[in-house]
Amino acid sequence: MKMKALLFSTLASALVLTGCGGGNDAATEEGGSQAGAKTIKIANYFAADHSQNVALEEVFKPMVEEQSEGRLKVEIYENNQLGDEAAFTDGVRNGTIEMVIAGMGLQANNAKIGVTEWPYLLEDYDHANEILNGPIGEEIAAEFEEFNVKPLGYTANGFRVVSADEELRTLEDFKGFRLRMPNVPIFLEVGEALGANVQALGMSEVFTALEQGVINGQENPYASLVNSSWYEVQSHVLETNHMFSPNIYLMNMNFWDSLDPELQEIVEQASEETAQYQWELAVQSDDEMKEYLTEQGLEIIVLSEEERQQFVDAMDPVYEKLFEKHDWAEELVNRIREQ
């Protein structure tokens, strides 16, 4: 995918990276020349040329390795190399993996973690950034600590759209449509509210399922649609923007506690700068991704305000259920909508 690599390379060169430089690589304790060096293995499910990994390679890794003067080494394991999201999330909790870029999958154990993914709640990237990087975001991030992880910053996966092997435009079109969604309750409920035949599959299974017609489509941000090459077996995109998906840097709490205050500060600052850089890449990439998909022959359907409102209204039963189930939910949703 030369085009995708060029895209992110172009975006990266246009932004000034602070605190980044060519440091000396540290070696691990097992096989290295520098005794006491610690390795931070970072696992994620994104393709190597996705903005998440571009940001890690161009900001986090050099910043941490240089500023720690070789006391920390960073190894990046993209594209499910250390297992799918459930596996590497378990790994960061139990300490077999030092750090991950996770979605909000832990909301299955603590619903408050996933509130920013609730349908049609965040309006645009500016609103999402303001919420996640403000007091509400801090309040939600604190919920992760019960799982033995240290939250280090939010990144932008993006607003989710529906790709399909046929034209979709109305709720009626979703009847009988086999739609892949993550195996997370809020996603499944949103898919059902759309009227789709929801299929829960892992990210690594999506391409084959699309190619073989097991599913008709999937929903994810534009970057995932392009970087995972799903567009090769799809013909249409419906720009629903029905949910915003953030990601979060999580570090094993025991590993975090093993770092001295100076190293903690280095990791924290690098996480902040990397997250902000990735956010900028994600925002800039959407238009480029749409243009690329159009060039590949996909038709992108943008809803009118009236058409979009039908989708918004279809989520009322989802919110009624959430408000009934969680006594904190309505107040928190109102705070987010008012900000």
Score class of each variant (00 low, 15 high):
135 P>D: 15
110 N>C: 13
162 V>A: 06
173 D>S: 02
157 N>G: 14
179 L>M: 08
188 L>H: 10
168 L>G: 06
155 T>P: 01
160 R>E: 15
136 I>G: 02
129 N>I: 11
104 M>R: 10
144 F>K: 01
96 T>N: 09
156 A>N: 15
110 N>D: 15
185 P>K: 11
131 I>R: 01
136 I>A: 00
97 I>H: 04
97 I>T: 08
183 N>F: 01
127 H>I: 09
160 R>K: 12
140 I>Y: 02
133 N>D: 12
127 H>C: 06
154 Y>T: 03
137 G>T: 09
140 I>N: 04
149 V>D: 01
156 A>K: 11
125 Y>E: 08
188 L>I: 13
138 E>T: 13
173 D>I: 02
101 I>Y: 05
189 E>T: 12
112 K>D: 10
190 V>C: 07
195 G>A: 05
139 E>W: 00
115 V>R: 02
190 V>H: 05
99 M>S: 00
163 S>W: 08
138 E>Y: 07
151 P>D: 04
114 G>H: 07
128 A>K: 03
194 L>H: 03
98 E>W: 01
190 V>S: 07
124 D>E: 11
157 N>H: 13
178 R>D: 12
126 D>E: 10
118 W>S: 12
111 A>H: 08
121 L>M: 02
173 D>N: 00
98 E>V: 08
193 A>C: 11
180 R>K: 13
166 E>L: 10
142 A>M: 08
185 P>N: 10
